[in-house]
Design a protein around this nucleic acid. Structure first.
Lengths: 317, 317
DNA sequence: CGGGTGAATGTGACCGGTCACATTCGGCGT
DNA sequence: ACGCCGAATGTGACCGGTCACATTCACCCG
């Protein structure tokens, strides 16, 4: 029995008789043989693995996507590596791209939710097999497979929900990943326009709670704001805090809606009305796209109405 | 110039003249040469990387630790892989151990906060170089390097803080990772004992918000509980919700304390009094322990008093 | 029953480094 | 100027698979 035959059963090539395959499999079991991943990668030129490039590992969306990638990769027998790019500085992008240039990095999944991610995606040489998880709509001028969750309709739903509750308009606090033409913003804006409501200026916040809190303070100071659509749940948390500090009740005085539906959102007080985003499924889809396995259906993001939104009241006690 | 000399400068062996090294370095730059990681791993038998074994990637403690590992690994030029073990089922542990048996897995960091992690740690063959992030005190009967954050004193502090506020005793909701003799529980119990307070039965909860909520409901139903030390911040969130549903105000009627200090904790309403745990530093320390770099000082967990704890009132309006 | 044919298996080189060892170099003592 | 010795460099095998190609096998047909 030659090493080649063994190699063939490992890669389950069709050119091996079932009986022979069985024989090899038994021998492998008996000898407790485990193929060496490094040797495999070296010989074939490509690695049996995926590396995910991300700007963060703690934020819910990123962590959740990573979880999805890992899960899908594991069932396929693929290793998963992780590489964080903190910023979109030229140096950091260059280093990351060099790192990914090594064939043993394998397939690459870049989380292109932010400038760091998109920067890497743009700079990656043609030869590196990559798939990107992006904002809805993908990235203009990039010719790479891209997958996304399209939350445009859900954003519009959320806006209409608020309008339907009697709010004159809906304000929006954006997170860093949002472009002006992003699905969140355009869904929100279009719904406002369609309803003939005023389109307030977007307030921008960072990923950190502090800046979201600051954004919340600005809005809380304006008595005309009664409904806020927040870029994500973390933002909503800080905005709600700012509202509380200003003495404005949620949802009594102001209604808020988040994005993501973090695991605890249903347990907030008040429970948060938010848009559920299935980042883990997005991660699994990325793996399928890059290695070509079963492609899971991506459930569209949808609004989950809970307690943080309410009919506007004209109470003046 | 032989390939061997190049290999030597790559591994910065001392046996190469500075002038020669410089020459090689320049040539590498000119040729845009990048060493192939797979070939390196194959030739040397060991991989230049770390793989993190963890039961979860989304929960704050785990995600944060992973972030710390990645950061430290990246500055050392090490790759980082990730492998999740969802449960401590025999099959899953065996598969994970087999996976780690491959030399190209490199050094291993196992997050042994739970049965899955400790199971892998116990089953790992002697030859696999590993370091474990564990509960305070380490694991009995395991002869492996272990690093931990010792929150015993902080747990005692939190308990004393609550007692000092006039609460007769402090209840405790435990998370899955806690052993009865864990630092959290023994710190809490000892402080109670030292103060001559009753030691209530521990209420156990899972990682999920639902079970924490259920635990909270049980406590909320008992009018004698006025102070609760929660196993982590996520638990505290759900417990606080249960209290709210039962019509009990926080901190007016019941004071709660969490563990971890998740990024948003300061922005809760009321802001959460909690114990800050620096999981990222723990992750960095694991890398240092396993590859032998700069060992960062581990800051001891400490109580951060905010708004969710207050003096017990005897108001009966 | 020989020849032809496609499927199954074997052969040796090769991936890009590292390792153990051989060789050459450079400076020193005499 | 010679020889010596340790330091610097070069040589070839090897890690454990994969690849391209050669060979053998089994079976069918005339």
């Amino acid at each position: 029995m030659s090493h080649q035959t063994v190699s063939r059963v490992l890669n389950n090539s069709p050119k091996v008789r079932p009986a022979t395959r069985q024989l090899v499999l038994e021998a492998m079991e008996r000898l407790r043989y485990r193929p060496n991943r490094a040797a495999r990668a070296l010989g074939s030129g490509r690695a049996g693995g995926i590396t995910v490039v991300t700007a963060d590992t703690v934020l819910y969306g990123y962590a959740s996507l990573l979880q999805g990638v890992e899960e899908a990769a594991r069932v396929q027998g693929l290793t998963v590596g992780i590489r964080v790019v903190k910023s979109d500085s030229a140096d950091e992008i260059r280093e990351t791209v060099e790192y990914l240039g090594d064939p043993s990095a394998g397939w690459v999944v870049v989380v292109a939710f932010d400038p760091a991610g998109t920067g890497v995606l743009r700079a990656l040489p043609e030869v590196v097999p990559v798939v990107a998880a992006t904002e809805a709509g993908g990235l203009a001028g990039v010719d790479r497979p891209m997958i996304y969750l399209d939350e445009r309709e859900a954003a519009a739903d959320a806006t209409r929900h608020l309008l339907g509750l009697g709010h004159a308009t809906v304000h929006h606090v954006a997170i860093p990943s949002e472009a002006p033409a992003s699905a969140r913003q355009s869904g929100w804006r279009d719904a406002l326009l369609a309803a003939g409501a005023a389109v307030p200026e977007v307030v921008s916040a960072g990923w950190d709670a502090r800046s979201a809190h600051e954004a919340g303070r600005r809005l809380a100071a304006d008595p005309s704001v009664t409904a806020i659509l927040c870029g994500n749940d973390d933002t909503a948390l800080a905005v709600r805090r700012a509202l509380y500090e200003a003495g404005r009740d949620v949802p009594g005085d102001v209604s808020i809606v988040g994005f993501d539906d973090v695991p605890g959102a249903a347990y907030w007080t008040p429970a948060l009305t938010t848009v559920r985003m299935d980042f883990a499924a997005l991660g699994r889809a990325c793996v399928a796209a890059v290695v070509g396995g079963e492609f899971p259906a991506l459930e569209a993001p949808r609004l989950i109405v809970r307690e943080s939104t309410a009919r506007v009241t004209t109470r003046r006690e």
